[in-house]
């Protein structure tokens, strides 16, 4: 019963948010129907950040405690995060096309997301290039920590760079109440999705570790 709770909750929230995005929420005046992509893009960006926060926490705990489960947490969260970041970039690009007439714009948040995407890639690359598992985990943790701390500075620099003032339009009263509600439901739906995906990935990672252990033991008894 318990293991189905979150997936079912996620499914219900997803359906509700779909209904709200397509039926309930009014069409934005200036941007038109395209603006509805906003309710997908913001949650994607949120997941990218949330995942990275978990990568950061997992990385610190792994370096301090040296327990494989913290690395498993960081790694699993990074995988979900990479998917979310890629999603945010694709969706952002789909939005940019009709609004600004280009596929890519150096809008500060989009730029920061791109940098985040490269940091995620570095996280996986250093792991596969380290040659040996525990070293890869350690190096990746270093990237996870440095990258996360870098993120606010990246956002600050890109915002200033495009001549815009920090702070979003979302909660500064610029959003109509039905829009805000739709956004919040979408955020909730995607957050639950994140937890479900993270749990699945963690279970898989644990199974991988058990399998490797069994294989190692087997090859030892054979030799």
């Amino acid at each position: 019963m318990r293991r189905y709770f979150l997936p079912v909750l996620g499914l219900i929230l997803m359906l509700v948010s779909l209904y709200m995005v397509f039926v309930y929420v009014p069409t934005e005046k200036e941007m038109g129907i395209v603006q509805r992509i906003f309710y997908l893009m913001v949650p994607m960006g949120w997941l990218a950040l949330l995942s990275f926060l978990l990568v950061f926490i997992g990385s610190i705990l792994y370096l301090v405690k040296r327990q494989a489960r913290w690395d498993a947490l960081a790694y699993s969260s990074a995988e979900v995060g990479l998917v979310a970041t890629t999603g945010a970039l694709v969706v952002g690009s789909l939005w940019a096309r009709p609004i600004w007439g280009v596929w890519w714009t150096w809008e500060p948040r989009l730029t920061a997301t791109l940098v985040l995407w490269f940091v995620y890639l570095a996280y996986f690359m250093v792991r596969s290039f380290a040659g040996e598992e525990s070293r890869g985990a350690r190096f990746a943790a270093v990237i996870g920590i440095v990258g996360f701390i870098d993120l606010p500075i990246v956002v600050l620099a890109t915002t200033l760079w495009r001549g815009m003032h920090p702070g979003g339009v979302i909660f500064s009263g610029g959003l109509e109440s039905r829009m805000l509600l739709t956004l919040l439901v979408s955020l909730a739906a995607f957050t639950v999705l994140y937890v479900v995906l993270l749990n699945l990935r963690l279970a898989l990672k644990n199974a991988e570790m058990v399998l490797k252990q069994v294989q190692a033991n087997k090859s030892e008894t054979e030799s």
Binding site: V115, V119, M125, V126, F139, G147, T158
Partner: peptide
């Protein structure tokens, strides 16, 4: 970190460039 990985010389720029984005932007501006 890069020196203990395969393809040593390749690893540094890939780690380094995204992280120093704020430095490059600020220095150029």
């Amino acid at each position: 970190l890069a020196v203990n990985t395969k393809a040593r010389e390749m690893v540094l720029p890939i780690l380094f460039l995204p992280v120093v984005v704020p430095v490059i932007i600020s220095a150029v501006e």
